[in-house]
Amino acid sequence: MTTTLYTSDHEWLAIDGDTATVGITDYAQQQLGDVVFVELPKVGRSLKKAEAAAVVESVKAASDVYAPISGEVLATNDALAAEPALVNSDAQGKAWFFKIKIADKSELGGLMDEAAYKAHTA
């Protein structure tokens, strides 16, 4: 059973046990426009909450994606290198960015559920 949580910076996290899959929200991709490049963290990197973990670039600009929680990067989505536009077509599905081993479950407490995130972006 996975639970999806959101950050105020427009990332989503699908929580499955000790693992969180992280991406950017559909709202975020709409704001960014056509994504032309994604840079992902190296597998094995230890991320601290709120540090720049990935970069997503549109024609216009580059935007940082911050680690929503602390933990080690377990896997990254190689499909995004070949097809950055997946972020536009399936932001909250096939276009996940990275999987992280949750270091501190208490950090999840500061995140939003779907209803709260919808209110945040309304």
Binding site: G33, D34, V36, S58, V59, K60
Partner: peptide, 12 residues
């Protein structure tokens, strides 16, 4: 206008 609904890539 920086872009319209089509977006920068399609407009280009």
């Amino acid at each position: 206008p920086v872009q319209y609904p089509a977006g920068v890539l399609k407009e280009h």
